[in-house]
């Protein structure tokens, strides 16, 4: 997993609530047996017309850069498909900001070095309004709107922070617990 520490980048705003994983990556694009290449179909049905032409009004077709995706409340609801996190990552995003994330999506993002930053509703509105680059500092757990200087702190578990900063994943940790797992199995009553 890639390490993450600090990022300054312009944003890609998507001010919609309840952006579900079927929008992030529709089921018909989940047929690959590898983790790569899903970025091509990120937000497929919003990004392209049914004839396959680019939809000029969709944000990904209007901006050419930005490693921070900013979505409305309840981002990533719906299915458990990790392909949603892979697609966002593969497209080039390193951070997703929202005022609320669905549980499974958040876990999947963290397991792939994609940092989900949960901010207050007010701060989210301020980000959309300013449309300015953001500074995301994982060490200090802070997010700042560069143009206005407005700053907020975000929550992340100490364990997950450690993993992201050092590029470690959960399996490394779990594998180091093998003997405890075997003990647990041997001592079960039921």
């Amino acid at each position: 997993m890639e390490k993450f520490n600090k990022l300054i980048s312009s944003i890609v705003p998507l001010p919609l609530e309840n952006v579900d994983t079927d929008q992030i990556i529709p089921a018909r694009f989940l047929k690959s047996t590898s983790r790569d290449g899903f970025g091509e179909n990120l937000f497929r049905d919003w990004r392209y017309t049914k004839e396959g032409a680019k939809n000029k009004d969709f944000i990904l077709n209007k901006v050419s850069s930005g490693e921070i995706l900013v979505g409305g409340k309840n981002f990533g609801c719906g299915s458990s498909r990790e392909h949603a996190a892979w697609a966002i990552n593969d497209y080039g995003f390193k951070v997703v900001v929202s005022s609320f994330f669905a549980d499974i999506f958040k876990g999947n993002a963290l397991n792939n070095g994609l940092l989900p930053v949960q901010v207050s509703d007010e701060f989210l509105q301020a980000i959309f309004k300013a449309n300015s680059p953001l500074e995301v500092d994982l060490e200090n757990q802070s997010i700042k709107i560069i143009e206005t200087g407005l700053q907020e702190f975000f929550e992340i578990s100490a364990y997950k922070k450690h993993c992201l900063i050092n590029g470690l994943d959960d399996i490394d940790f779990l594998l180091s617990n093998k003997s405890e797992i075997e003990n647990f199995e041997n001592n079960r009553l039921i």
Binding site: R35, S79, S80, R81, E82, H83, A85, D103, I104, G107, N108, N111, N112, S157, Y159, D169, D170, I171, F173, L174, L175, N177, K178, I181, E185
Partner: peptide, 22 residues
């Protein structure tokens, strides 16, 4: 409960997952 593919891999490797209690 539903899990992502990285967690499927965790269960394959250790029959456990890392999970914060809801």
């Amino acid at each position: 409960f539903g899990i992502g593919t990285s967690e499927v891999e965790q269960v394959f490797a250790t029959q456990c997952i890392l999970q914060t209690k809801p």
